[in-house]
Design a protein around this nucleic acid. Structure first.
Lengths: 334, 334
DNA sequence: TCGATCCCGTGAAACGATTCATGGGTTAGG
DNA sequence: CCTAACCCATGAATCGTTTCACGGGATCGA
């Protein structure tokens, strides 16, 4: 038999209203009653029924998050930031991982919708935006982590143009003149943005520095190694003297290839990665990287959810957060 | 204004009971009514209120999972397996990440308890077991991923004794005679278990093979490198001819050290890691590793939850799943 | 002593879906 | 044509909490 407010009230000799007030920490209850109720709660092992609470009060305490890949530190760190922000309002963040399956993603979307979550933070490939928009009209806003996917929603994401500029500028500042930009496929918006930023930095040098694009089919360690090998096939004087890899994985692969051929890093070629994953600091030569402001993105996303709940769905906005350079030996030790 | 069963029923010209039956796919409704109701559902954008459903029916559709570290592929893969199993019963898995903070963990525990989740899958360090046990008496079972932490709960986990034996046996089979066991701190149960397994394998050789333990304070790449350096300080004839690292991270660090000193792998020293993380296949010499049966653990955990909900909390069990060897160049190429 | 004010506990209504006893309508058998 | 049997839509009761109008009792000033 379920222990409810009623049972607690009976044991404590008070009314259910009073028990509710005590359980929710409302200030209007005399100390004597508070104690009596708390004793009864303990004694009966009362656990508040969230379904009833949500039903009556019409509000949920959970912020939903749906991500494609649970192993991607980008998403998990965004989740951490979101969790921090949610905690301030006594809410929690619950994460569903779609593993890039549209069906699984749709199930999570429906589930959060039915739960009347406070809002959704979504990085999605699937075709769920119409449904999300329907939810939004019902008062559950969604915040996208991929910008520009759908104008109807707010979004928060890293400033990729700036990231590209920061990386190349750092290479220029450390004396590099022939820079390689390694990444692909170039249909990805993040990559074209970073390339724009990279060219911004180049164009400030009046032709003193060149940029060459090495397009890749993916951004894995193996592909990085292939790129490294390809670069090393060239005579040293026509090689780039710096490579800007669009993921740390690519950079690690490149580094492996250079290591294997005893090419000095950063002496002969310097390397920058992107993402600043944990591994970046533990490679044979610690890797300079661009750190994405993941926690801040998560925090911001939760704030936007709460703002939209307050101010109606009017305030749609697209926010970018600035990435930062994390300099390490792969570009610094001469 | 909220669109409820009532509004749908009014528009479709039927009763709420009928709408409920249609929405839940019950077979007792005539086709004509089904169509009318579905039209109305579409038209009004009806989304079922899970709070009301859960309140009345007394059952939830979510399996809760609480993990300490969102970036650990062990947990995320367990979550994937759990999600697969949950889907079979039309349930979903929602994950909360405690980031090793007791307070955050406790918040998730309370939240899932209040939600009357179907059950909890937990890898915990915190002091929450009494609370979990209280929930269990209320009908919400918990399954631990760390065995032996608390006898009151069922658990599923990898068979670490077997993992240790498999790894060492493979080294013996590939002709190694002086094996180093690298890991720590040795107060961790997983490690002592694996050491037991390792010694099992050794003891089958009648002293032909020796095992030396290199205890480490943690299991990071940096520590691995340190161990590698330490081994290389010895004269070659007293070095181990194989190292069994308790994580792939340790193994990668060791590999970096050996690479840097041009020691051949596996020619001079062969290496096995543990966990088979994505990186294991992409190191300079692809790393042989022990693969933990993570998806299966997740699947099993969900099955145990459902079993306990059926059969009362009587059936407490402790299950281990067999890990497998993933052979790669770091032990094979001579 | 009386009335005005506050304080604070009370208890019933309400949230929206599920469930099930009820009975209207139809079919089949005689 | 009548009854039994069956099918299936109905709608009211119900889940446990929150919320709020209500009023009993205490305090205070006059």
């Amino acid at each position: 038999m379920e222990v409810g407010l009623r049972e607690v009230a009976a044991l404590a000799g008070v009314s259910v209203g009073t028990v509710s007030n005590v359980v929710n920490g409302r200030a209007t209850v005399a100390q004597e009653y508070v104690d009596r109720v708390n004793d009864a709660v303990m004694q009966l092992g009362f656990v508040r029924n969230d379904a009833a609470r949500a039903l009556r009060s019409g509000t949920s305490r959970t912020v939903g998050m749906i991500i494609p890949d649970g192993n991607n530190p980008f998403y998990t760190s965004v989740a951490l930031g979101a969790s921090d922000a949610a905690t301030l309002n006594n809410n929690i963040v619950l994460v569903g991982t779609s593993h890039d399956e549209a069906e699984r993603e749709a199930r999570y979307v429906e589930a959060f919708g039915e739960q009347r979550a406070r809002g959704l933070i979504i990085a999605s490939a699937g075709n769920i935006h119409d449904r999300l928009h329907q939810f939004a009209r019902g008062g559950m806003p969604s915040i996208l982590l991929d910008p520009d996917v759908d104008e109807r929603f707010s979004s928060v994401g890293p400033d990729d143009v700036l990231g590209g500029r920061i990386g190349v500028q750092h290479l220029i500042d450390t004396g590099r003149r022939r820079i390689g930009f390694v990444g692909g496929p170039m249909r990805l918006r993040v990559l074209t943005d970073r390339l724009v930023g990279a060219n911004d930095a180049i164009s400030g040098t009046n032709g003193a520095v060149t940029l060459e694009v090495f397009e890749t089919p993916d951004r894995t360690v193996l592909t990085g190694r292939t790129i490294g090998e390809r670069v090393l096939k060239r005579p040293p004087e026509t090689r780039p003297d710096a490579l800007f890899a669009m993921t740390d994985l690519l950079a690690i692969g490149i580094l492996q290839a250079l290591d294997a051929h005893r090419v000095a890093v950063p002496g002969d070629i310097s390397i920058i990665g992107y993402d600043d994953i944990d591994f970046a600091s533990t490679t044979s030569v610690p890797l300079t990287s661009i750190r994405q402001p993941m926690e801040i993105i998560g925090r911001k996303a939760v704030e936007m959810i709460e703002a939209q709940r307050e101010g109606g769905s009017k305030k749609r906005e697209h926010i970018t957060i600035e990435p930062t350079l994390v300099p390490r030996d792969s570009t610094l030790r001469p």
